[in-house]
Design a protein around this nucleic acid. Structure first.
Lengths: 117, 117
DNA sequence: ACTGTATGCTAAGTTTACCAAGCACACGCT
DNA sequence: AGCGTGTGCTTGGTAAACTTAGCATACAGT
């Protein structure tokens, strides 16, 4: 059950702290901007807690950076993950509200038939 | 204060369920792939809980989609990342370097057949 | 009939993200 | 000397994410 991603989350805290100081913000100032309490932000910066995605998004906004960058630093953006990137077609199909589930299934099956060899 | 997110999270559960069924996975199968318990996944799909970013990432991996797409559907990407274009499917097909011209035409023809009445 | 197994759901519990209140130190003021 | 305000940190508590054990149905072998 134990995770060994400690280093990942610890460095996330250091990253946030670095960005905060780079923006010349105090703990409380950033906490208010990101709509979290200041003790909690302190604990996040020291790696005691893993902030939720919602908090990360607010922090990213407060620090004027994209949420993707934040998630990437948090280690939950799957660095190179297996074949997610080159499949823009599949994602577009899956997200299209004009298609029924059966139709999506059909299209994806055909698409995979084309791309697999 | 957080009521305005309800619709977002509710649809996230439906989205996950749709993707799961699209991949022909049972609740337990997807739960195992995403390293969560199956009752929890059931509750997530019905909108009772907001999955954490880590769970979201694992779910995205298990469903062969990018984590960004997942976060986008979950509504916790910056609001500047706007909603998917209604006809992103055709563009994605045209831009896919893995498809031949014939294959692109075939896919687009099928897609249009689906979306026309 | 009677298992065995697959499906999803419920109940009860543990863990943890997160907050409100307050502590301790440092730096200006008057 | 005080007083006020800024900094980050600690302490208790609550709510929600998440798990383990188990229920109920449905469908396949004997």
């Amino acid at each position: 059950m134990s995770d060994r991603d400690d280093a990942v989350w610890k460095s996330l805290g250091e990253f946030i702290k670095a960005q905060r100081e780079l923006a010349n913000l105090s703990l409380r100032q950033l906490a208010e901007l990101a709509k979290v309490s200041n003790p909690y932000l302190s604990q996040v910066e020291r790696g005691l807690y893993k902030p939720s995605a919602e908090v990360l998004k607010n922090l990213a906004n407060a620090l004027h950076m994209s949420a993707e960058t934040m998630y990437g630093q948090a280690g939950l953006l799957d660095e190179d993950s297996k074949g997610a990137a080159p499949h823009g077609v599949e994602n577009a199909i899956k997200l299209d509200p004009a298609l029924s589930q059966d139709q999506k299934e059909t299209l994806i099956r055909i698409y995979r038939g084309f791309t697999e060899r």
